[in-house]
Amino acid sequence: MTGDIARPQLSLKVRLRFDRRTGRYLLLYPETGLELSRTATEIARLCTGEWTVDEIAQHLAQFHTEISPVEISRDVLDFLKTLAGRGLLQGLQ
């Protein structure tokens, strides 16, 4: 599935939570969590199943003009593939 039609969504077992102690967001799932970087958080927040990969990248590109949209798209897709590889994401296959 390509970026123009894939609509990634966090798996049912995954929760995105803000940790007030560290000021960072965590992806929580059974027995483990991922402390996300700022850009990883921006991407994860848009994994609602309603945004395509391309829409996510285009949306973020509006706020990060210091880097090319192509590079953002690549980073977004790489990150989403990593999450999918851990079983944390659906809708990307």
């Binding site: 969590g33 991922l34 850009t39 990883a40 880097i67 790489d78 990150f79």
Partner: peptide, 14 residues
């Protein structure tokens, strides 16, 4: 804020 490659650190839910 500048773009940085998205990353994460795995933490055990102890």
């Amino acid at each position: 804020m500048n773009w940085e490659a998205p990353s994460f650190v795995e933490v055990k839910m102890d």
